[in-house]
């Protein structure tokens, strides 16, 4: 159904949208640029890999477990690091560096886990091609259909949670005005904890999805952290929806863009793949400094309509 470059692009973009959405959520609630997203995403992949290796079946059934484990990592990060630092009114840099430290701990645990799996169970966890265990749907890889569905489902559930539930509304209130929210009786600790539950879960789910389009390694998350942040920054770091959209655009543009560039100028360009999302981010921010969230879409659409009418007349 999809050509291979588009199928892979959809999986990659969906995974980046989940991770970028999580990064944005954590930033707007706790002012924390979460570098541990790398480790959380890698753990998400390994949870699916481990359960699939031992229990078999359909690998997608283990995605919820990846999400839950990511949430657990998020809870540990919040309670152990983020909450005490927020209480001490730590700067954004301190908050960010603390997550970098947490990420290094996660990376070490992942390395130990890989060693354990290799020596005890004779598995090969350091280079895993999860796409080999995927199946076909409508004459294309199931991942290219299921991954966007997962991203859209998470986006829809998140939207319903934030707009239709009392706790979700309290999250929006805390994001907008934490002091007034707290003075209204809303416990901001609970809101921040929930952000880490959702953010960590999205990171791990994104990692599990990501492993279907690239080789799963212990440093998979680290190699992708720049792209995750590029997506979040492109989204404007103001809205979760912007982050999810930014991640999707960056992911799709990188995957599809590098394919076309390789066809046009030769395969040597593949080595510069990582530069593409950063270039897209830089150009977008030059045109729209507040990212996608800062664009006044209704005004933009109105201007386009007016320009079109002008051309016709």
């Amino acid at each position: 159904m999809f050509p291979p470059w588009l199928a892979g692009g959809l999986v990659y973009a969906s995974a980046l949208s989940l991770t970028a959405g999580g990064i944005t959520l954590l930033y707007i609630t706790t002012r924390t640029f979460n570098f541990a997203h790398a480790g959380m995403a890698t753990f998400g992949f390994y949870i699916t890999y481990i359960f699939y290796s031992f229990r078999g079946g359909n690998l997608y059934q283990y995605f919820p477990l990846s999400f839950l484990f990511g949430s657990l990592l998020g809870i540990i990060c919040y309670i152990g690091l983020n909450k005490p630092l927020l209480r001490r009114q730590a700067s954004t840099i301190t908050l960010m560096m603390s997550t970098l430290g947490y990420d290094l701990i996660l990376l070490s645990i992942i390395q130990m886990l890989c060693d354990y799996l290799s020596y005890t169970f004779k598995l090969y966890p350091r280079r895993v091609t999860m796409s080999a265990y995927d199946f076909e749907m409508f004459r294309t890889s199931a991942a290219s259909i299921i991954s966007p569905i997962i991203a859209i489902t998470i986006l829809t559930l998140l939207h319903l949670f934030l707009t239709r539930t009392k706790f979700g509304t309290s999250m929006r209130a805390t994001i907008e005005n934490p002091i007034l929210a707290s003075a209204s009786g809303i416990n901001s600790d609970k809101v921040y904890l929930m952000s880490w539950v959702i953010g960590g879960g999205m990171a791990a789910l994104g990692g599990a999805v990501m492993s279907l389009t690239m080789t799963g390694t212990p440093v998979m998350g680290m190699t992708l952290i720049a792209q995750m942040f590029a997506g979040a920054i492109l989204g404007g770091l103001e809205s979760i929806y912007g982050g999810i959209l930014g991640g999707f655009i960056v992911g799709l543009a990188e995957y599809v863009g590098i394919y076309y560039l390789a066809v046009m100028v030769g395969p040597w360009i593949l080595g510069y793949r990582m530069a593409l999302p950063l270039l897209i981010m830089a150009i977008t921010l030059l045109l729209f400094p507040r990212g996608l969230a800062g664009i006044q879409w209704s005004y933009l659409m109105e201007s386009i309509k007016r320009a079109r009418k002008g051309v016709k007349s």
Binding site: K166, T169, A173, E176, A181
Partner: peptide, 13 residues
């Protein structure tokens, strides 16, 4: 007030 929330949501919060 919470500028991005509706009046009903503001009262609910």
């Amino acid at each position: 007030v919470f500028a991005d929330l509706t009046l009903r949501e503001n009262l609910m919060m």
